[in-house]
C-alpha cells in the first residue's frame, strides 16, 4: 500500500507544482499590472465596448486565430517590427482587457496586434474581408462574404456602399458591410499597440 501512496501522491505533486509555478504565480505577479492613464485622460488599454466588443466575438467565432497572431516579438528576435507589424514589442499590459486571449500561434497571415494602426481604412478592410483576392491577389485567406450585403449590377447603390475595383466581381458592383461586418471592422480598427509603454523598451 505504501508504494501506491508514493505513486499517487508523487503524481499529484508533479502536476500541482506546475499549476502553481506556471499558472498561479504568474497570475499573481500580473495582479500588479494596471492600465496607464494617457495624457488625454483615457486609459490604455481601454476596455472593449460596443461594436468593437461584439466584433471581437465575431473574430473568435470565425476562428481568425488559426491564421493570425496578435503578438509582436521584440526587435532583434524575428522581423516582426521590421515588417511593420508594430512599432514595439507586445507586453503583458497590452492584454489586460483580453478575455479570452487571442495571442495565437500561427502566422499563415500577418500579425494583427496593430492592424488598426497599419490599415485604418474601413473600405480596405471591407473589400479584403469580402474577397481577399480583390486587395491581395494570391492570398489564401477565406472569403467572408456573408458579412456584406451585395449590390448587383443595375441596382442603385446606397450612398455609403463601397465600390468593388475594376468591373466588380461577377454580378456584384458594390458591397455594404452588414451588422457583423461593421462590428468586425470596428474591432480590427481598435487593434492598436502603438501607445508607448515603458516596459516595452527591453
Amino acid at each position: 500500500m505504501s508504494r501506491t501512496f508514493v505513486l499517487a501522491f508523487g503524481i499529484l505533486l508533479t502536476i500541482l507544482s506546475s499549476v502553481t509555478g506556471l499558472v498561479i504565480i504568474p497570475n499573481w505577479q500580473f495582479q500588479a499590472l494596471k492600465p496607464v492613464v494617457k495624457a488625454d485622460g483615457r486609459r490604455y488599454p481601454e476596455a472593449y465596448f460596443g461594436d468593437s466588443a461584439k466584433g471581437r466575438g465575431v473574430y473568435i467565432s470565425q476562428g481568425c486565430i488559426y491564421c493570425h497572431t496578435q503578438q509582436v516579438r521584440m526587435k532583434g528576435y524575428g522581423a516582426d517590427i521590421r515588417r511593420g507589424w508594430g512599432t514595439r514589442r507586445s507586453v503583458p499590459r497590452d492584454y489586460l482587457e483580453d478575455r479570452p486571449h487571442q495571442l495565437g500561434t500561427m502566422r499563415t497571415g500577418p500579425d494583427l496586434a496593430s492592424i488598426g494602426a497599419r490599415q485604418p481604412s474601413e473600405s480596405w478592410h471591407a473589400l479584403h474581408l469580402y474577397d481577399p483576392q480583390l486587395t491581395s491577389a494570391g492570398s489564401v485567406m477565406p472569403r467572408y462574404n456573408y458579412f456584406f450585403d451585395e449590390v448587383k449590377r443595375g441596382q442603385m447603390p446606397p450612398a455609403d456602399a463601397i465600390r468593388l475595383p475594376g468591373n466588380g466581381r461577377g454580378d456584384v458592383t458594390h458591397i455594404l458591410p452588414n451588422e457583423r461586418g461593421r462590428q468586425l471592422i470596428a474591432y480590427l480598427k481598435r487593434l492598436n499597440q502603438s501607445f508607448p509603454l515603458p516596459e516595452a523598451n527591453q
Binding site: 500580473f30 526587435k75 532583434g76 514589442r89 527591453q202
Partner: peptide, 18 residues
C-alpha cells in the same frame, strides 16, 4: 523573475540596438 521582466538577460537591451 517579475511580471515585466520580459528580456531574458539584463544585458539583452544592448544587443538589440540595431
Amino acid at each position: 523573475w517579475s511580471a515585466d521582466g520580459l528580456a531574458e538577460r539584463a544585458t539583452a537591451g544592448a544587443a538589440i540596438t540595431a
